[in-house]
Simulated scan of single mutants.
Amino acid sequence: MADYVLIDGDQALFLPSFGAATVVVQPGTLRASGPATLAAKSLCVVGDEASVSVRGCIYTTPQYSIPGTGTLEIEALAGDQQAQKTATGATRWLLVGGSFTARFVVQSPAKQPPPGPGAPIPDATPQYAGSGNFVTTNTKLRGV
């Protein structure tokens, strides 16, 4: 089924639930590398999802209530987010599709308040899994 093609500047919206972690999410911006254009904006092709990186997002967990920070990234596309037939050269277009798999990579761990005197205990989990979806400004071009 045809879906809208993503273009330069479109957004990746992350859901705030990343397993045990709750992230204060911010949208990420896609940077297109495809040579084809629509309304003077390059089309996104498979691989451009790696351009999305949202640093400095705050997170906590039920156990680690002192906030930490990290980076939101796209880990993997859903099957319906890659065109099966439409491409630029040999590289398939990126489509809005369903939900992609996301990861939250911890930069500064959240901390657990100490049970008594002493330093807070840092979160030992290096990353958390979540999801998100794309939003496009393209209302004309669809890919299959």
Results as ranks from 00 to 15, higher is better:
1 M>G: 12
2 A>H: 11
3 D>I: 05
5 V>N: 02
5 V>A: 11
6 L>C: 10
6 L>Y: 03
7 I>E: 03
7 I>H: 00
8 D>A: 08
9 G>F: 05
9 G>D: 06
10 D>K: 02
12 A>N: 05
14 F>Q: 01
16 P>D: 08
16 P>I: 04
18 F>Q: 04
19 G>A: 07
20 A>T: 13
23 V>K: 06
23 V>C: 04
25 V>L: 04
26 Q>N: 13
28 G>R: 00
31 R>Y: 09
31 R>H: 14
31 R>S: 14
34 G>E: 01
35 P>H: 13
35 P>T: 14
37 T>V: 15
44 C>A: 06
47 G>A: 06
50 A>Q: 14
55 R>N: 10
56 G>Y: 06
57 C>L: 03
58 I>Y: 07
62 P>K: 14
62 P>Y: 07
62 P>W: 09
62 P>L: 09
63 Q>H: 10
65 S>A: 07
67 P>C: 02
73 E>H: 12
75 E>C: 03
75 E>N: 06
78 A>I: 08
78 A>P: 07
78 A>L: 05
80 D>L: 05
82 Q>N: 08
84 Q>Y: 09
89 G>H: 11
92 R>F: 13
93 W>V: 03
98 G>S: 15
99 S>Y: 09
100 F>A: 02
104 F>E: 05
107 Q>V: 11
107 Q>G: 12
109 P>Q: 08
110 A>N: 07
114 P>A: 14
114 P>D: 09
116 G>E: 07
119 A>C: 00
121 I>V: 15
123 D>C: 15
125 T>S: 13
126 P>F: 12
127 Q>S: 15
130 G>D: 02
130 G>R: 03
132 G>I: 01
132 G>W: 00
134 F>V: 02
136 T>F: 04
138 N>M: 00
139 T>Q: 10
140 K>F: 15
142 R>Q: 15
